[in-house]
Simulated assay, not measured.
Amino acid sequence: MGISLCRRQCRLLAGCLFSFLFALPLLAETPSREPSLDLPSDSRLVWTAHASGFQVYKAQASVQSQASFKWVFLEPDATLQDSAGATVGRHFRGPCWEAEDGSRIVGLLPPLAQCPGRGPTDVPWLLIAVHSTGSPGVLSGVTHVLRVATAGGAAPARPPASAGETVRVPYRATYLFLGPATKPNP
């Protein structure tokens, strides 16, 4: 019985040692590459929403060769949610963001700034100037949208098989809606 207990302890110790050696490369210090974008001066946070949905891409002929195709971004298709998970709006072609209260903004392209997401399959972080096109509401005073904390959504690595083919790539992001900073009264 004593030998059996010793064997179990040795196996347990060997398993722990193997797990540690396996995880050692993961624990090695690697430089952190956290994306960042500068905010517009004199801006304040007006609203925050979390998006969950798709980035839609369409295949079109490559400029280099009519026989090959490439993915071209077509539109976002996402639901906007608050921090509790309740639906508060939507994000769609334009790019447009529309709140449940009817307020809507449209982005002016190209983006003012962008930087790569955390990984190769993440769409970039963006800073976009916008203008209001909807009813008065939470978005009507917004001048800029910042897309951060992206997960997924990048165009597929595999090339399209034919022109006109579309793919819907799942993604998540946080959108920060910025307005002009309020000036203190004299």
Rank of each mutant, 00 (worst) to 15 (best):
M1Y: 01
S4I: 10
L5N: 08
C6H: 08
Q9R: 10
Q9G: 06
L13R: 09
L13T: 08
L13A: 14
S19G: 11
F20R: 00
F22Q: 03
F22G: 00
A23R: 08
L24C: 04
A28K: 12
E29Q: 11
S32P: 03
E34H: 14
P35W: 10
L37P: 05
L39Y: 13
P40D: 02
P40N: 06
P40L: 08
P40K: 09
R44E: 12
R44A: 09
W47Q: 14
T48N: 11
T48Y: 07
A49C: 11
A51Q: 11
A51G: 15
A51T: 14
S52E: 14
F54W: 14
V56Y: 03
V56L: 03
Y57Q: 02
Y57M: 01
K58F: 06
A59E: 03
S62K: 14
Q64N: 15
Q64C: 08
S65Q: 15
S65A: 15
Q66K: 15
Q66W: 10
A67S: 15
S68W: 11
L74W: 05
Q81H: 14
T87D: 09
T87P: 00
V88M: 09
G89K: 10
R90V: 09
R90Q: 12
H91D: 06
F92W: 13
F92I: 02
R93G: 09
R93T: 10
P95V: 07
P95G: 03
C96F: 05
W97M: 03
E100P: 00
G102V: 02
G102N: 06
R104H: 01
I105H: 04
L109F: 09
L109G: 00
P110S: 04
L112R: 13
P116E: 13
G119P: 00
T121A: 12
D122C: 01
L126D: 07
L127Q: 11
G134Y: 02
P136S: 14
P136K: 13
V138G: 04
V138R: 14
L139S: 08
G141F: 00
L146D: 01
G152E: 01
A155G: 01
A155Q: 05
A157N: 10
A157Q: 13
R158G: 06
R158I: 04
A161D: 09
S162F: 12
G164I: 09
T166S: 10
V169N: 05
V169Q: 13
Y171L: 04
R172Y: 03
A173H: 05
T174G: 00
T174R: 11
L176P: 01
F177H: 03
L178I: 01
G179S: 09
P184K: 10
P184C: 07
P184L: 11
N185P: 06
